[in-house]
Nucleic acid binder design. Structure first.
Length: 574
RNA sequence: CGGGCCGUAGCGCAGUCUGGUAGCGCGACUGGUUUGGGACCAGUAGGUCGGUGGUUCGAAUCCACUCGGCCCGACCA
């Protein structure tokens, strides 16, 4: 391919709306162009990148026996009602919905469990047809609260999603492991530094799930991990050993103390010398939404620890949780903000507590009276016995749940996510097959996603320098460029064409940069675009000498034309 | 959803406070000279100043509304 025939439009400046390296570089290289917030046009070279990555995904999934299909993006409401997810997705405002000319509700698919389950259910009647694993690579639509970071969090994006259907749990376990293996190979082939972490299954639902995280400072997810035990988890899911806190001792009589304008844990520590945060129980009020109702719930947490809202939503089986507003707090507790507590909490407000408070005595809490807190509160004696759950956010430095060693923290970009769904969707949608006994059984399902447009962006995040992108060879738009510095000079044109043909012959995905640019511009442009291996045919072409550049590390050297092929192949690891 | 900021030429920006002929750099186009680090010279084109309404003799500038976009916060009881 000749670059003069490809639409390439690099910019000198970073676009004003880009924050992170991958967004800046992809936009500056002209590889992506914003069409609307979170909606991008992919330039020809970027589309080559995406297609190459998608091809890797296909090869590795096909190797494990998965089948590629094409599913509709435009989907009817009924399908989503049948799984029970219409309300949740509409409630969250994350789904693009529309009406057709008849007034029927439709949506643009944010994910494809429903369509796939309906499809497989219609085609598969017997256990003899199982297992089945189908996938698709297509655009998905999510009306993100805050699209950002270019391709990282778009509203229209490309995703691979696969769904496995098995007769039983053992079949699912096997399908899951196959996909896990395939995912590892996929990200390894892309040369990405990634880690697999335990994850919350979120809106998709289901039991176990793991995320594939590309480690990068710009990552939107926080992960905690332990080098000793190999434990790694998204903070949404992570647990740790409970940090110590001073014991409360034998139960003492409760006292109510005037604490005017003392509202926060820090202020309480200052007000009551000797009462450290670990002896307090803060009571946080949340507004919780379920499918058919919403109410304010009181959540107790040890004063030195933080509530994990994802765990809270899961514990309550809620659609959404958010902090209660000041008005809601006053209505629920009868006190100003800062004085909520378990003591004298109105009966209609449900009371939850983190496990860190189980068995603890003589706590300092609020008591729902403005300007007062209570000392020596004992749960179950001075107030209702709350229902105890794991609601705590694990933090860096706390003990690993397996080894006890301090957990470390890192940022990650979620590029893949695998779930054991079980029968959640098949039961909801009545998707069954006949087992050997002639009885209908729900499919045991797994689902598996890969961010196909996000992963190349993550690759840039991990592979760039001050000059531009450094594509991993496997997903680079071209593995190699042969650039003639002066396309006016016959000897350069001839040598460039010869090397280009020779490399192509050798199976290298090579392009010929025959554009009429000045040498400086050509160097800059190719560095920015990030081709892994670059061959410059310049003033020494007449002597059969060219310049050879390995983009990673910018190692440059002179090279005889006759050695170019061998050096390119070596640089590409072939 | 809150809070803050920004919409002026393809891109990056100044001009707005203090109303009075719409500017700069890069890019683009033409001609010429160039060809090893985003070349140089000369010239050219390109903008309903996001939109609507208002104030005014006069609005990019002031006011109101509106539409886009960006950033921050979603943890305090």
């Amino acid at each position: 391919m000749r670059l003069s025939q490809i639409l390439i439009s690099t910019l000198r400046d970073d676009p004003a709306d880009a924050e992170i390296p991958s967004h800046k570089l992809l936009a500056r290289a002209g590889l992506i162009v914003k069409t609307a917030a979170g909606v991008y046009t992919f330039a020809p070279l970027m589309w080559r990148v995406v297609r190459k990555f998608a091809q890797i995904v296909r090869e590795e999934l096909d190797r494990e026996g998965a089948n590629e299909v094409m599913l509709p993006i435009l989907q009817p409401k009924e399908l989503w009602v049948s799984s029970g997810r219409w309300d949740r997705y509409v409630n969250d405002g994350i789904m693009f919905t529309l009406k057709d000319r008849k007034g029927s509700d439709m949506c643009l698919g944010p994910t494809h469990e429903e369509v796939m389950t309906a499809y497989v259910n219609a085609q598969v009647n017997s256990y003899k047809q199982l297992p089945v694993n189908c996938y698709q690579i297509q655009d998905k639509f999510r009306d993100e609260i805050r699209p950002r970071f270019g391709l990282m969090r778009g509203r229209e994006f490309i995703m691979m999603d696969a769904y496995s259907f098995d007769a039983d749990q053992a079949g699912l376990d096997e399908a899951y492991q196959k996909m896990r293996r395939a995912y590892c190979r996929i990200f390894e082939r892309c040369g990405l530094e990634y880690t697999v972490v335990q994850a919350d299954s979120g809106a998709i639902g289901g039991a176990g799930s793991e995320e594939f995280m590309v480690l990068a400072d710009s990552g939107e997810d926080s992960i905690l991990f332990c080098r000793d035990s190999g434990y790694a988890a998204n903070v949404e899911k992570a647990t740790s050993r409970l940090p110590d806190a001073p014991a409360g001792g034998e139960p003492l009589p409760m006292e109510q103390i005037a604490t005017p304008d003392v509202r926060t844990v820090a202020q309480l520590e200052a007000f009551f010398p000797g009462w450290t945060a670990g002896r307090m129980a803060k009571t946080v009020l949340y507004h919780v939404t379920w499918k058919n109702k919403a109410r304010v719930v009181a959540v107790m947490m040890r004063g030195d620890l933080e509530v994990n809202e994802v765990k809270l939503a899961n514990a309550l089986d809620a659609l959404a949780v958010r902090l209660a507003t000041d008005d809601e707090i006053r209505a629920a507790t009868g006190a100003e903000v800062g004085f909520a507590g378990p003591v004298a909490l109105p009966e209609e407000v449900p009371l939850l507590a983190d496990e860190s408070l189980q068995g603890r005595t003589n706590l300092l809490t609020g008591c729902n009276r403005t300007g007062y807190h209570c000392l020596n509160v004992n749960l179950g004696r001075d107030c209702r016995q709350p229902s105890f759950k794991d609601l705590r956010t694990a933090r860096q430095g706390e003990g690993c749940p397996l080894s006890g060693r301090p957990l470390e923290q890192a940022r990650g970009i979620e590029v893949g996510h695998i779930f054991k769904l079980g029968t959640k969707y098949s039961k909801a949608m009545g998707a069954t097959f006949m087992d050997q006994g002639g009885k209908p059984q729900p499919f045991v399902m797994g689902c598996y996603g890969i961010g196909v447009s996000r992963t190349p962006a993550a690759a840039v995040e991990q592979n760039h320098d001050d000059k531009g992108i450094v594509w991993p060879a496997s997903i680079a738009p071209f593995e190699c460029v042969v650039a003639m510095l002066d396309p006016q000079r016959a000897e350069q044109v001839m040598l460039g064409a010869r090397l280009y043909a020779e490399l192509r012959e050798a199976g290298v995905d090579v392009c010929l940069d025959d554009r009429a640019l000045s040498p400086g511009a050509k160097f800059k442009d190719n560095e920015l675009l990030g081709f892994p291996v670059q061959v410059f045919v310049g003033r020494k072409a007449g002597d059969g000498q060219v310049e050879f550049l390995v983009r990673r590390g910018m190692q440059k050297s002179e090279c005889a034309a006759g050695e170019v092929k061998a050096r390119v192949l070596a640089a590409l690891g072939r």
